[in-house]
């Protein structure tokens, strides 16, 4: 069996392996550190940070549905100052690539947060733009509006020299078009998909279950949708994709890579099994070795590349 080198190159960003947490699903806590060495992750991805402190949505924020989780958390954040002073120094201790997710209510807010993080480029390796959180109270998610998304990515591009990852919303008619706009506006990498908007109703109280009425659906239930969107996007947009949406094991992760994702992110599955990301790293390695591949990039998009031959 050949030696496998798990290193992946996502445009300007190098990762030691293709597996990372999805933003907002993984905490750098003492309890987590006792479970495994976080340096084994391809990247650490921090929860979205906003300019000012914001409380997030009222309870209930969570509701489990068939093979999925609805959440209406709504980006609670301590704000960028707290992030820089308290959170960042702790995250920077992890010996792996650090991706910081940023969010905002306006184009200017995104740009300001990006600018404020730029001096920390020694510690922060890339910014992920949370353009797609469905739980914002003010207006539409940026990634569902062509003009807003273009303006946001462009403004962040002008505010930082860090690699930019644009996180796309699946709640659009044509995600390929949105990916193309993100690329034109200066994104280096695409991450997709964020949650699908959904809801649940309590038949006894006859009211919506979530405090915010609607929320984002994630988990195994959305995997086929995510896979299809990555399949389409990777064939027409020539920047790397971090794929996510219901990945629960190595097999799922490999499917995403075969569909066209260069790396993968894991969300809800870590709540079921806190060691699942390590199992995915190991599973990808043994799949590659077992099938005669030397690196993850050799299988990216194979499902459509081989089909075209």
């Amino acid at each position: 069996m050949p030696d496998v080198d798990l290193t992946v190159q996502l445009g300007p960003l190098t990762l030691k392996n293709p597996v990372m947490p999805a933003s907002g699903t993984f905490e750098y806590s003492e309890e987590q550190r006792e479970l495994f060495d976080l340096a084994r992750l391809g990247a650490m991805v921090a929860k979205s940070v906003t300019l000012k402190r914001r409380p997030g949505n009222p309870a209930p924020r969570l509701h489990e549905v068939t093979a999925g989780l609805l959440n209406a958390v709504g980006i609670p954040s301590e704000g960028i100052h707290h992030f820089i002073e308290v959170t960042l120094p702790a995250l920077a201790q992890i010996d792996t690539t650090l991706i910081v997710s940023i969010a905002g209510d306006s184009v200017e807010e995104f740009a300001t947060v990006a600018r404020m993080l730029d001096p920390y480029r020694g510690q922060v390796s890339a910014l992920e733009l949370n353009l797609s959180c469905p739980n914002l109270t003010h207006g539409v998610p940026f990634a569902t509006d062509e003009k807003l998304m273009r303006a946001t990515v462009e403004a962040v591009r002008e505010s930082t020299t860090l690699p930019i990852i644009a996180k796309l919303s699946p709640n659009v008619t044509d995600i390929v078009k949105m990916a193309g706009i993100a690329r034109e506006a200066g994104a280096d990498i695409i991450s997709m998909i964020n949650t699908l908007i959904g809801m649940a109703i309590d038949v006894e109280t006859r009211r919506p279950v979530l405090g915010n009425v609607v929320g984002g659906l994630s988990g195994p239930a959305i995997k086929p949708v995510a896979l299809r969107m990555i399949w389409e996007t990777s064939q027409s947009v020539d920047i790397p994709i971090i794929g996510m949406g219901g990945i629960s094991n190595a097999r799922d992760a490999i499917e995403f890579m075969l569909a066209g994702a260069s790396a993968v992110a894991v969300g809800v599955a870590s709540f079921r099994n806190p060691l699942v990301m390590l199992e995915i790293v190991d599973g990808i390695e043994s799949y590659l070795a077992g099938h005669g591949f030397g690196s993850p990039k050799e299988i990216v998009g194979l499902a459509w590349k081989e089909r075209m031959v």
Binding site: G24, T25, F26, E27, S29, E31, Q32, K47, G56, P58, A59, P60, R61, L62, H63, E64, L69, N71, V73, P76, V268, S270, F271, P274
Partner: peptide
Amino acid sequence: ESHMACGTGACKGCIC
């Protein structure tokens, strides 16, 4: 008491 997804502070779901 609250519904929880992770139980460890990561998912930000169980507020009071």
